[in-house]
């Protein structure tokens, strides 16, 4: 234990086992890795926290990146900058874009992917991309470990810790990611837009699409995905209009935290993406 602030204890485990043991004993603690989101959410000049803190910098097991033929595995406390530096031939383009959209370069030296995924009640930049890529996360507690789909991260239990993120390699031919606004400070305005798809001889297959950064929800339109899957590139004007209409009716009826401003923004993103498929995309064998 390092010290205290207004009666709050700060723990500094030096190994994963020690961390799991501490978390078991103190489940209601703040896990501090880069701490960028926690510091950004502070209101005043002097930071104060209402719970004890576990500082993860000494836990080297959480700072490893592992690559196999089938997947990329990233420790929850690996800084975002280090993940970006893994290289463009390994890191999927959309994920790299999502990570580059986190804060400024100096903030990315501190911020970690575990922190980006682990903020309660907020879905930040990397979440929707990783979810569409079928990423799984390891949740550990003392003596137990389980892997779950990232989309089910809400089911994280008390005393459990997100330790690793596993991203399967797939050949995504189309990868689009755009984000506007700050999902942490301005959740009512911010939005991210992700599309992943495979193509085979100029025909779209397995298209996945998500609108994220909208508070705690991530929106997917299965109608929109189904409509575009199987279409030949480039899209015709008719297909363009039909896809816009499908998304428009989806977003107008979307339940959740989406504000009218975000709905309008998401529609603009969809227009931009479909224009790319209609006017810009040139299929090459």
């Amino acid at each position: 234990m390092e010290g205290n602030n207004l009666g709050r204890n700060i723990y500094a485990p030096q190994s994963l086992n020690e961390l799991l043991h501490m978390r078991e004993q103190h489940p209601d603690t703040i896990l501090w890795s880069g701490g960028t989101a926690l510091m950004r959410m502070q209101k005043g000049p002097v930071p104060s926290f209402d719970r004890d803190i576990i500082h993860l910098s000494g836990v080297n097991e959480l700072k490893k990146i592992r690559r196999t033929e089938r997947y990329l595995e990233i420790g929850a406390a690996v800084p975002v900058k280090k993940i970006i530096n893994v290289g463009q031939h390994i890191l999927p383009f959309a994920l790299a874009q999502a990570l580059m959209s986190i804060g400024s370069p100096a903030v990315r030296n501190l911020a970690t992917m575990g922190g980006n995924l682990g903020i309660k009640d907020r879905r930040l930049n990397s979440f929707s991309v990783l979810m569409l890529m079928d990423s799984i996360v390891e949740l550990r507690r003392s003596g137990k470990s389980r892997w779950i789909q990232l989309g089910r991260l809400n089911s994280i239990g008390e005393a459990e810790i997100l330790t690793r993120i596993r991203i399967p390699f797939r050949n995504w031919d189309l990868q689009y990611f755009r984000a506007v606004g700050d999902p942490l400070l301005h959740p009512m305005d911010s939005l991210s837009f992700t599309v992943l798809a495979e193509t085979n001889k100029g025909i779209i297959s397995n298209l996945r699409f998500a609108v994220g950064n909208t508070g705690k929800s991530t929106l997917r339109s299965l109608d929109f995905e189904t409509y575009l899957s199987g279409k030949k590139l480039r899209l015709s004007g008719k297909e363009f209009d039909a896809a816009v209409n499908i998304f428009q009716s989806f977003v107008q009826n979307a339940e959740g935290d989406l504000t009218p401003f975000q709905k309008d923004r998401s529609l603009r993103f969809v227009h931009w993406f479909l224009r790319e498929l209609r006017d810009v995309y040139i299929f090459t064998e």
Binding site: G3, G35, M39, P45, G103, A106, V107, N109
Partner: peptide, 27 residues
């Protein structure tokens, strides 16, 4: 800004440029 955006508080810690306003003493 106290949000790590303006860079006026930048320092180099262990070889990396970081915003010092985002770093608590214990770390």
């Amino acid at each position: 800004c106290l949000k790590g955006e303006c860079k006026s508080c930048s320092v180099i810690i262990d070889g990396e440029v970081v915003p010092s306003c985002m770093i608590p003493a214990f770390s």
